[in-house]
Design a protein around this nucleic acid. Structure first.
Lengths: 209, 209
DNA sequence: CCGGACATCGAACTTTCGATTGACCGGGGC
DNA sequence: GCCCCGGTCAATCGAAAGTTCGATGTCCGG
């Protein structure tokens, strides 16, 4: 049984690398490539594909997690294996919520990559050890885990928005924004918004441009 | 005349991709690969190589710019072509100072990549259009260029320090720190420290963890 | 069913930040 | 020599951020 693959990554070199690594496996066949998330969604709907290898950060246009959600929403959809460079908590959560079957880092060795593809093709969940470890840590110390809402506010803080701007963006009052930030500061062990952004960046909780 | 290549990148997939892309060129031959900067320095000294494709960010150990400096310091050294994902001003300057013959982004199309390798092999300078454009912009609008001191203060802001903490760290008064930040805000077109950090991060003026 | 976590909001308070203005000095360039 | 720029500092004032104390409602699991 051949596993048909769709590669979605904006870097030609990475696509070539994935093709080189995966085509050496006898039971894999790369049937399509996409340089944008939009194109990946289109191809996944049209071509018969078993597993999509999806990057998260594309240079322009749709984000990989959005594309993942669109692809997995259909019935009989292929499995989506997220393959990204960095592992922020926000990205992992977004990918899992979007219906990704797995989450791999690009620095993974080829054997791990092939194993993850087979796992995903079989319908099981495939998480990179580093990612799994992070989720374990998150489970083990739920006190330090930021809620989705807190991450959302923190991300906007990192984008340079003021409390006023954040409140308007999220349809909240400034009081609520401050409230969330108080909790964020407590969980991160800091006492200012910039320190929170720095701490969250090192812990890969948020996306930094 | 065959161009002998050494690939230095910690991502197996990227190395495979570069090999796939470059080995299709008749006059290129990938003769060695290195997964760390240290290994790249070692191989560049031992193997007969014409051009080194050097990543900047390795997972652990030496930085690519250090390795570049070590490699180019020798007489009869190969040319080093820096090939990285992101293009921060600091990285570009460091690479050029280290003696890199060129600076490419990993999202470059294969033709551009091959052309840059030939340019480097011929002993000429090879800059990616995006990188060259950045340098041109930097020349054209020096008003937006932050001074060394301003960057220093801004970096500490990005690390989460308060004005008070920065003043102590740099042996300044808070007035001076504020003064620098006023200039930074004006140059970046923002009006708060977090917005300045966000703007500087997107423009790759500072280091983000 | 009840406790706890999460999300929401308000008000009063303190601290920090940012804007503004003005000043001094040293080093280059004209 | 003179002027401009970079770096340094001071004082002030309003705005923003952060703290503290409260409160309500939902939802979920024991």
């Amino acid at each position: 049984m051949t596993v048909r693959l769709l590669l979605a990554d904006d870097h030609p070199v990475v696509r070539a690398g994935l093709r080189a690594v995966l085509d050496t496996e006898a039971d894999f066949a790369v049937v399509a490539e996409a340089a944008t998330a939009e194109r990946a969604v289109e191809l996944a709907a049209r071509e018969p594909v078993d597993v999509v290898l999806m990057d998260l950060q594309f240079g322009t246009g749709m984000h990989g997690s959005e594309a993942t959600a669109l692809i997995t929403a259909r019935t009989g959809a292929p499995r989506v294996l997220v393959l990204t460079t960095y592992d922020t908590d926000a990205d992992i959560l977004a990918a899992v919520e979007a219906g990704a079957s797995g989450y791999l880092l690009k620095d993974a060795p080829p054997e791990e990559l092939a194993a993850a593809v087979r796992t995903a093709a079989a319908g099981r969940s495939a998480l990179a050890p580093a990612v799994a470890l992070r989720l374990m840590d998150r489970m083990r110390t739920p006190a330090e885990a930021l809620t989705k809402r807190e991450l959302e506010v923190l991300q906007l803080v990192a984008d340079g928005l003021s409390n006023q701007q954040i409140s308007k963006r999220l349809f909240l009052s400034q009081a609520t924004v401050k409230s969330h930030l108080v909790h964020v500061y407590a969980k991160l062990g800091v006492e200012s918004r910039t320190a929170a952004v720095a701490a969250a960046a090192t812990r890969r909780l948020i996306r930094t441009p």
